[in-house]
């Protein structure tokens, strides 16, 4: 069981670092939803099913939905990716 937990924490931290440093903005939003996914599994492992379900519904579903709408509206989907890869 401990290796499963270690792997999930690894996935979570890799995705979290990726959110900050990946140049493409759409990939950053994808990485945010992956962080929520790992958190859902962790909440289920520590026997908190209510919180796990809330995180699954809000973090992974509605959160990425809202952020994707924001991306669409802010124009990060323009061609060339020059706007999306603005310096950070």
């Amino acid at each position: 069981m401990i290796w499963v937990v270690a792997l999930i924490v690894c996935i979570m931290l890799v995705a979290a670092v990726m959110v900050l440093f990946v140049p493409n903005m759409i990939a950053a939003v994808v990485a945010t939803s992956v962080v929520s996914l790992a958190l859902t599994a962790i909440f289920a492992i520590v026997k908190a099913p209510d919180v796990a379900m809330t995180e699954a519904a809000i973090g992974a579903g509605l959160g990425s939905l809202i952020l994707a709408l924001g991306l669409k509206r802010l124009g990060f989907n323009q061609t060339g990716g020059s706007q999306g890869e603005e310096n950070d």
Partner: peptide
């Protein structure tokens, strides 16, 4: 069971 108004409300909104 686990769940409730917040989670189901998100499903309805979506």
């Amino acid at each position: 069971t686990p769940g409730g108004g917040f989670q189901g409300g998100v499903l309805l909104a979506v």
